[in-house]
Amino acid sequence: MTKKTIHITPAVALLMAEGLDLTPYLIRHFGGDRGEVTEAEQRKNRESLRTDQVLSIYTVTPRITLWVTTRAGKTLVMLSQA
């Protein structure tokens, strides 16, 4: 199995401390399920597979959205709050 480097933003770390489990979202991301990306983002993801850069977007709650991006083997998990 390939080792993956995962970085999280401070806002995501705070939510994890409050009980958010990233595991299901990371499994989806690494499994190819890109969540709620737009059609344009889906096209860009398909093109970017050759350069190892993909984006996934997951709604956690109506007010919280996770953005997961992988580039050159490094993954960053970011938070968007409404």
Rank of each mutant, 00 (worst) to 15 (best):
V60A: 13
N45C: 03
E39A: 05
L22P: 04
A72C: 09
A40M: 04
I6V: 15
Y25L: 04
R50W: 00
E18G: 04
L76G: 01
D33M: 03
Q42M: 09
R43C: 02
T23P: 11
A11R: 15
V37P: 04
I8Y: 09
P10K: 11
P62S: 03
T65M: 06
T51L: 15
A17P: 00
T51C: 07
K3S: 11
H7L: 12
E36G: 08
P10N: 09
V54P: 01
H29V: 14
I8F: 05
V77D: 04
V37M: 03
R46S: 02
K74A: 13
T75Y: 01
M16N: 09
A11H: 15
A11W: 10
Q81F: 08
T38I: 04
L79D: 12
K4G: 01
D21P: 00
L15R: 15
L76Y: 07
R43Q: 03
K3M: 10
A82Y: 05
R46G: 00
T9C: 12
M78V: 00
L79P: 10
L76F: 10
L55R: 04
S80V: 07
E18W: 10
L26V: 01
T69Y: 03
V77K: 05
W67V: 06
K4I: 12
I8G: 01
T70Y: 05
K3Y: 10
L14K: 15
Q81P: 04
